[in-house]
Design a protein around this nucleic acid. Structure first.
Length: 435
DNA sequence: TTGCCTTTGAAGCGT
DNA sequence: ACGCTTCAAAGGCAA
């Protein structure tokens, strides 16, 4: 039986690779082939969606509500809990799923739906159950040898590595072969990070908190805020319990996927990341605009504009002061919150030649003084940093110029005590936030 | 359909 | 070593 199925398996792979081009394949007109094609067509129709075939749609709707009890749950198909999770169901059957399963098939929901959709599905060569049986030996071998998920099983006949199984009926219609050879990888299709202690805490307490609050309409984000507070209030011993859960999860995760790195998931939410960065860029740009004399003093107060703005040139303030967030604090419109730890805030640590907090405050004092007295920032403009790269982690080498130019401060310049007091209020707030 | 929000912690990466 | 960024869960909401 096993040999027969595995032979079939090889045929499926071959057809997937070059079904249309291979004359040997296209020349096959055996009855078995026709029967297989029919099965594939049926399954494709079932998978392709509800609206296309009404009976299938109705079937899907009815079965979704109550999965077919007659469908035999094959051993190793969908475990209710994963062995490595400390008593908690995992969102994916990480252990029991054959490692060489295509990403599109690893979703337990998809597999359950596929089974529920059609009882005959389980009997098709493409069915996960069928695959589990047919490729059990290869899966076992792959599990034991820790073959990476993106690699296919070892062909028991040729002893050559096969591509990950990608049956024709499962391939996305847009040729988007997720998880194999590029393409968009769905969130649920990749190996997820093990949960940290707080995540386990949230998982355990979210429902209880919801019931406790008795407000199911409460936004998840707000709920998480509350959970964050409770996490802080949690005794160390209680927290330790979750830290151990997280540790255990990490260890098991590492055992199961020794080659996996968190880096692999970085591209999964690439869009989101890009948007966030774009947002930050936009904010910076907005703030920069606000610092222009036109926006700062108004169109009618051209006498207050810097000489460059008066000549309709690039604003001196906007170009030179982009590294400072002082005005954001002044008008109460922080770039990303007054106490934000974003990259746009000055780093409290004085490493990499950055000015100390006190030095930065002093610099801002001078800037403030010049600003309020409508003084050109000729001397102070050299004190401030270059615009920061919006997306880089850490600081650019340009920032070291800040400390280099500290000596440019005119220490003999007198500062109005009243102005100093005003700035002190601002700086105190900043300091509190920074600390 | 997809990203955002919001939390904390772990991991990766750049300096 | 340090700081920044991303992702993990959750589900309502907005675009």
């Amino acid at each position: 039986m096993a040999d027969e199925e595995l032979g079939d398996e090889v045929k499926v792979f071959r057809r997937d690779e070059d079904a249309d081009d291979d004359p040997m394949i296209s020349g096959e007109t055996s009855e078995q082939q026709l029967a297989d094609d029919k099965k594939e067509a049926v399954m494709e129709a079932e998978l392709d969606g509800v609206g296309q075939i009404s009976s299938i749609g109705e079937l899907k709707a009815s079965i979704k509500a109550e999965p077919s009890p007659s469908f035999p749950m094959m051993p190793g198909m969908i475990p209710t809990t994963a062995p490595f999770s400390p008593g908690y169901p995992l969102p994916y059957p990480a252990i029991m799923m054959p490692l060489f399963m295509p990403y599109g098939l690893r979703s337990p929901n998809l597999m359950l739906n596929m089974q529920a959709l059609s009882p005959s599905f389980a009997m098709l060569p493409h069915s996960p159950s069928y695959l589990n049986m047919a490729m059990a030996a290869a899966a076992k071998q792959q599990l034991e040898n820790q073959v990476p998920m993106h690699m296919g099983p070892l062909n028991p006949l040729s002893q050559m590595r096969m591509p990950p199984y990608m049956p024709q009926g499962i391939v996305p219609q847009n040729n988007d072969r997720r998880g194999y050879g590029g393409g968009k990888v769905k969130k649920e299709d990749h190996i997820k990070k093990p949960l940290n202690a707080f995540m386990w805490f949230m998982k355990e307490n979210r429902k209880a908190l919801l019931e406790e609050i008795g407000n199911n309409e409460k936004q998840s984000a707000e709920l998480n805020k509350e959970l964050g507070k409770r996490w802080h209030d949690l005794p160390k011993e209680e927290q330790q319990k979750y830290f151990e859960m997280a540790k255990k999860d990490r260890e098991t995760h590492k055992e199961k996927y020794p080659q996996w790195s968190a880096r692999e998931n970085y591209a999964v939410n690439k869009k989101k990341t890009k948007k966030r960065r774009d947002k930050s860029v936009v904010l910076t740009s907005e703030n920069s605009d606000q610092k222009k004399c036109r926006a700062r003093f108004g169109v009618n107060n051209t006498e207050m504009w810097c000489k460059f703005c008066k000549r309709k040139k690039k604003c001196e303030y906007a170009t030179d002061r982009s590294g400072s967030d002082m005005t954001d604090n002044l008008d109460g419109r922080g770039t990303s919150g007054a106490c934000s730890s974003s990259s746009e805030s000055p780093s409290p640590s004085g490493n990499m030649g950055l000015p100390s907090l006190a030095q930065q405050q002093l610099r801002r004092t001078f800037e403030m003084h010049a600003l309020i007295n409508n003084m050109p920032l000729g001397s102070t403009s050299t004190l401030v940093s270059s615009p920061q790269p919006s997306s880089s982690a850490g600081r650019s080498p340009q920032d070291t110029n800040v400390s280099d130019s500290e000596s440019d401060i005119d220490e003999d310049e007198e500062i109005d005590p009243t102005i100093l007091h005003q700035t002190d209020v601002v700086l105190r707030e900043e300091t509190m936030c920074t600390l």
